[in-house]
Design a protein around this nucleic acid. Structure first.
Lengths: 158, 158
DNA sequence: TGTAATATGTCCACAAAGAAACAAAACACG
DNA sequence: CGTGTTTTGTTTCTTTGTGGACATATTACA
């Protein structure tokens, strides 16, 4: 069979039971995906994580930090740091609402909105490239199963 | 529709184009999977990453650090630290082979082998539980697509 | 053989992310 | 009202993982 096809690794090792482990496969796939992402789109001027935060704030103006953290499954402590960095970079604006002065409402600045306007298409385009090991149908099915696994709504018909 | 079904997050936010992003979905799914893993199996005495390293060494006696790092997609520098910890814990044994004295061959100690013997079944059992948002067929299909995405061989018929 | 290029693991400095304790505001409710 | 509890975000400390320079060993090859 396959002679020298580029694999995840050149050395064909025995993965044993890990091939049946969803967590292991998800971990590896995520790492592979990010690696490809950073290779092919050499920099939006921010990390993929930051990009998704900015995008979500754009989609949900006034969203609070904690809600963002919860939905992205990262800790509030870390979100604090990310938001501060995005604020320092001038992409995000923080507002303390009068009706609950503990919380922080987030919105994009003009600069942040412009950044999205310029780069969203490129981001979306990349995402549909995949790793070329799956065809379009398979990749769509993979995304569908992941959304279902995560109990997320179906993709925008947009 | 769905009233108050437990979702990834209680607050239904607008994910916008991220719902079509394979990388984003993989990231979230991996985090969700690990969270569930650590909740339901409160500790093998080591992290999931270490467990997979020990497992792979057991499956591939004499494997070298770099090969391990490459296949797990982590950096050699980090693998050095992990192996050192596993060695200190007495699970792994390092050998410098005579034919290439740069490299390090890894094997399980008796203690490491015993740890696998005791916990592998439990590990494997968990993995097939999934998140209960996918049925057996869907979860198997998800794993199959992930393996294909990663260009990994098909699951052991074991 | 000798010299350059490569492979392998390690060291050090740093970045990303989490854990736990904390402060301030909001809420519950006697 | 006042006091205890919960929510929200922050601070500090630790863990996990990366980046790049390095030392040593191996290989290529003139």
């Amino acid at each position: 069979m396959a002679e020298d096809m580029p694999q995840v690794a050149s050395t064909g090792i025995d993965y044993g039971p890990l091939l049946g482990s969803l967590g292991f496969l998800l971990r590896l796939a995520q790492l592979a995906s990010f690696e490809e992402f950073y290779e092919s789109l050499p920099s939006f001027g921010m990390s993929a994580a930051e990009f998704s935060v900015v995008l979500l704030i754009g989609q949900n103006p006034g969203i609070r930090q904690g809600v963002l953290a919860q939905n992205l499954m990262i800790k509030r402590a870390h979100m604090t740091k990310m938001i501060r960095a995005l604020e320092d970079a001038g992409h995000v604006q923080r507002t303390i609402p009068d009706d609950d002065r503990r919380s922080v409402e987030l919105r994009l600045t003009d600069k942040g909105a412009e950044l999205m306007a310029h780069n969203l298409a490129q981001f979306t385009a990349f995402e549909s490239r995949g790793k070329e090991s799956l065809n379009k149908t398979e990749e769509a099915e993979l995304r569908r199963l992941l959304r279902k696994y995560l109990r997320l709504p179906e993709e925008d018909p947009a």
